[in-house]
Computed example of a mutant assay.
Amino acid sequence: MQANVKWVEGDTFIGRSASGHNVVFDAGHDSAAPSPMEMVLMSAGCCSSVDVVSILQKSKQNFTNVEVQLTSERAESAPRVFTKMNLHFVVTGYGVSEKHVARAVELSAEKYCSVALMLDKTVDVTHSFEVLEA
């Protein structure tokens, strides 16, 4: 996998993936785009969400929405790495089984989500969920 990041101006950069997609990053205080650390946090959420949605579809759960609410804590001083991260899944649907959601989240956390599993080597990554009736 390869990518390129180019400085635009100030604290703004554009990342370009090998697949040709562009992403804007902004590390300034009055930023117009997510910071690199926000992107890492959202990447963990997206990676795990892909797993959870796929597993729930395979288990034929009648869900209408899956959202992951991400919270994190960072070190007080530089480097301001993540020290804690929680991925809280909110699954909405009709008669969705808590057992199936728990299993989907567990499989993502322990086996499939490469981003969260990579971060888990140095960050206390936790997962939680709730099921809401549509």
Results as ranks from 00 to 15, higher is better:
V66F: 03
T92K: 02
S59G: 09
D120V: 14
A18K: 15
L107E: 11
Q57T: 09
M118R: 03
L132F: 00
A102P: 07
M118Y: 11
Q2D: 13
S35C: 05
F13R: 09
V40I: 09
I14K: 15
A33F: 07
N22Q: 06
Y112L: 01
W7S: 08
F82I: 03
N62Q: 08
A104G: 00
R103Q: 05
H29F: 11
N62L: 06
T12A: 13
K58S: 09
C113V: 13
K121V: 12
N86H: 05
S54W: 15
A32L: 07
S43L: 06
K111A: 14
S43N: 01
K58A: 13
E110V: 01
A104M: 10
N86A: 04
A109C: 02
C113M: 04
H21T: 05
S43M: 06
I14E: 02
V66G: 01
V66I: 07
K121I: 11
A116N: 02
V96P: 00
A109P: 01
E110H: 05
K84V: 14
T83F: 05
D11V: 00
H29I: 12
A3Q: 09
K99Q: 11
T83E: 07
M39V: 11
K111G: 06
C46N: 02
V40G: 02
K60L: 09
L70N: 15
T92H: 09
I14H: 03
D120C: 12
D124Y: 02
V96T: 03
S48T: 06
A75T: 15
A18E: 03
V50L: 10
V131C: 14
I55L: 03
Q69D: 09
A134L: 07
